[in-house]
Amino acid sequence: MSDLQQTLDRIAGAPDLHSLDAVRVEALGKSGWVTALLKTLGGMTPDERQQRGPEIQGIRNAVSDAIAARKEQLEAQELDRRLATERLDLSLPAPTRPAGTIHPVSQVMDELAEIFADLGFAVAEGPEIEDDWHNFTALNMPESHPARAMHDTFYCEPLDGEPARVLRTHTSPVQIRAMMKHGAPLRVIAPGRVYRSDSDATHTPMFHQVEGLVIDKAIHMGHLKWTLETFLKAFFERDDVAIRMRPSYFPFTEPSAEVDVGWSMEKGRRVVGGQEGWMEVLGSGMVHPSVLAAAGLDPDEWQGFAFGTGIDRLAMLKYGMNDLRQFFDGDIRWLKHYGFSALAVPTLSAGVGA
């Protein structure tokens, strides 16, 4: 019996894919007998090669075709066997798969947007790389103001013929852009990333801030106080949230006030609510006439209030984190612990009470 016929018989009788692959290696592998025949073509004369070449190539094709056909048969037989023997219990729970979570900062941004939407505020956005005028000058900050110092602000390398650029130190420039674009009356919040040269347990070079702005006629501090009380009660989901306003100074508001919120101890943890102590959470005030004028509004006709707070700080107070730097470490364990399910309701469902 010829080598070809023996090989074809072994292929046809191969009981499984492993045995079939062994036959393939013996015939078509580096040391296989068909490969050896193909190598002899190199030492033949052109006439011999013309005569023997088609015959050897036909042997190779016959073996390859037989292996492919038998492989298809064995795979079909294996599939039939699995279909006949394997069972799937549909009552068993589906296997769990890795799932991402919503970052606390994104969660709080959603909550803020919902609360202020109930109060009639729109969301405004602006560039994170700002020019000097929007970030400082239009906000009533003279050239000598400490906020312009290098230890507070990240300055970008200036380009020829262009004004100085900075990584915005607050989202207040968005207020300027919103007033210039939409005029008055106006009611917006401006959430987003901001940058300052600072780093410790409660400060990072990049953090998140939200600011609010209301421009209308006959606006006064009472409107500001009511807005902040309503916002804080809705955000912390407690009716016993108390605030106090202390005189302060900001160049873009006059008068200005720091806002403290009352806290109490519950189960060994400090929580917002009650009045066992006070902690600062917001800066606020009536918009300075110079800021209104810089944005193209008449200070004699329009007035308003503004406020700002750190989104990361709000998240820490509400959800019990104690180190701001962990927000940006990318530790999957921290994200799994403090993150929110994407399938859960991501924002407050009760809304803002009257």
Rank of each mutant, 00 (worst) to 15 (best):
Gln77Trp: 09
Arg49His: 02
Ala113Cys: 13
Met265Lys: 09
Leu119Ser: 03
Leu90Cys: 00
Glu75Gln: 10
Ser256Asp: 06
His208Leu: 00
Asp16Ile: 06
Ala12Ile: 06
Trp33Thr: 03
Gln326Pro: 04
Ile129Leu: 00
Phe235Glu: 06
Ile219Ala: 05
His134Ser: 15
Ala62Pro: 07
Ala76Cys: 10
Glu301Arg: 15
Val105Met: 11
Pro127Gln: 07
His151Ala: 10
Pro163Gln: 14
Ala315His: 05
Arg97Glu: 12
Glu78Arg: 14
Met206Thr: 05
Leu297Asn: 04
Pro127Trp: 08
Ala12Glu: 10
Ile129Asn: 00
His288Leu: 02
Lys336Asn: 15
Ser31Glu: 15
Val241Leu: 06
Thr171Gly: 08
Ala94Trp: 14
Leu297Tyr: 04
Thr227Tyr: 07
Pro93Arg: 07
Met245Lys: 08
Lys267Val: 10
Asp260Lys: 12
Arg165Ala: 11
Pro289Gly: 03
Gly268Phe: 00
His220Ser: 13
Ala68Ile: 11
Arg70Leu: 02
Arg244Leu: 01
Leu74Phe: 00
Gln6His: 12
Gly43Phe: 09
Met109Lys: 09
Ile219Ser: 02
Asp3Ile: 00
Ser64His: 12
Met286Glu: 04
Pro185Lys: 06
Ala94Ile: 10
Leu8Asp: 01
Met1Cys: 01
Gly353Trp: 13
Ile11Leu: 02
Leu186Asn: 04
Leu20Met: 02
Gly100Glu: 00
Arg244Phe: 01
Val287Gly: 07
Phe207Ala: 03
Glu75Cys: 04
Asp239Cys: 03
Lys217Ser: 10
Pro95Gly: 15
Phe327Ile: 04
Ala294Gly: 13
Gly161Ala: 03
Val188Ser: 05
Met321Trp: 06
Leu228Val: 01
Gln107Lys: 14
Gly183Gln: 11
Asp132Pro: 01
Gly13Phe: 12
Lys181Met: 01
Glu78Leu: 15
His103Arg: 07
Arg187His: 09
Gly320Thr: 10
Gly310Arg: 05
Met141Pro: 03
Val352Lys: 10
Gly32Tyr: 02
Gly212Gln: 06
Leu232Thr: 01
Gly296Ala: 11
Phe207Pro: 03
His18Cys: 04
Leu139Pro: 00
Ala99Pro: 06
Val63Arg: 01
Gly283Ser: 11
Asn322Leu: 00
Tyr249Ile: 09
Phe250Leu: 03
Ala68Arg: 13
Ala12Lys: 00
Pro146Lys: 08
Thr204Pro: 08
Gln6Thr: 13
Asn140Cys: 07
Met44Ile: 11
Asp216His: 04
Asp16Tyr: 01
Glu55Val: 05
His220Thr: 12
Asp152Cys: 05
